[in-house]
Simulated assay, not measured.
Amino acid sequence: MEKPSSYCQAVSLMEAGNVHTHYHDKEYGFPIDDDNELFARLVLEINQAGLSWTTILKKKDNFFRAFDDFNIQKVARYSDKKVEKLMQDAGIIRNRLKIDAAIENAKRILQIQKEFGSFKNWLDAHHPLSKEEWVKLFKRTFRFTGGEIVGEFLLSTGYLPGAHINTCPVYKTVLKSKPAWVRKKS
């Protein structure tokens, strides 16, 4: 089988109904307005580092349960006891650096919300930036955010183009949702 050149082609070569199909067709590249959902996507991207996206998608429901549906205020208040509970949870990625990053990033998003009103407003205020500029901004602002993590976060939430190729059946649906990369900066 020929190696797919995009996530769209890879998903089309997989069996229908696998964990990638819903994500590709309903989530990947679509804008997210809710701060808790944006935070969830960031944490999931951080947890993917060094692992396959399939692993993360299979554990996605467990992550939401373990991290209180990614309620930013709750995660920002996690105690050492909660961290130890997470470290024992086989349903998620048990990596202390990634868990600590989720907690610290929740605290930083709370600060962003105070200054900008929301995490989404902060993202919109910095759009459009090049991928390199986004990476520098995220590295200054958040923990555990390298180039791949930031790039995938921004692709998956509609801030950078390229989540879907123009021949992908989902491409036009994504365009109708008006992701940030198709909007002009006001």
Rank of each mutant, 00 (worst) to 15 (best):
T157S: 05
A163S: 09
G50T: 09
F116M: 06
D124Q: 12
F67N: 01
R143S: 13
D25A: 12
G146H: 04
R41Y: 07
I99L: 08
T145E: 02
S156N: 14
Y159I: 04
R96Q: 10
N36P: 03
T167I: 13
A106N: 06
L129V: 04
N95P: 04
K74L: 10
L51G: 10
I92V: 10
D89K: 09
H20G: 04
A49M: 10
H164V: 08
A49F: 08
K26V: 09
A40V: 04
Y7K: 03
N105D: 12
K26Q: 15
M87D: 08
C168P: 03
V170T: 11
A163Y: 01
L13E: 15
A10Q: 04
G91T: 13
R94K: 15
A125H: 07
F39Q: 01
K60C: 05
N47R: 01
F153S: 00
H164P: 02
I112M: 11
K85L: 12
S52M: 15
D35L: 05
D69I: 05
H126G: 07
V170N: 02
A76E: 03
G29P: 01
E104P: 02
G91I: 13
L160S: 04
M87K: 12
R65L: 15
K58S: 15
S186V: 14
I99G: 00
K58G: 12
V83Q: 09
Y7Q: 03
S52A: 14
R65M: 13
A40N: 07
F142S: 06
F39D: 01
S118I: 08
T173R: 11
R96G: 08
N18I: 02
F142K: 03
I92Q: 01
R41K: 15
G17H: 11
F67W: 02
D61C: 05
N62Q: 14
R108C: 06
A102W: 00
Y78A: 08
R183P: 01
T157P: 01
V135M: 03
N166F: 07
F153R: 01
M1E: 08
V135A: 02
K59T: 08
L160H: 04
D34Y: 04
K120S: 01
E148I: 15
D33P: 02
W122K: 06
R77G: 05
V83R: 10
S52C: 13
I99Q: 00
D69W: 08
Q111N: 13
V43W: 00
K178L: 13
S12A: 15
G162V: 08
I46V: 15
R183E: 14
D61L: 11
F119K: 01
V135F: 02
Y7V: 08
I93A: 02
A101C: 04
K26D: 10
L175W: 03
D124Y: 11
K82S: 10
H164Q: 07
R41H: 13
A106E: 04
L51M: 15
H22N: 07
P169S: 12
R65H: 14
N121E: 14
R140N: 15
Q9I: 09
N105S: 06
A76G: 03
V170L: 05
E37Q: 11
H20L: 11
R183N: 14
G91W: 12
P31T: 11
A76M: 07
L57H: 03
K98H: 07
D34T: 07
V43H: 00
D124V: 12
C8Y: 00
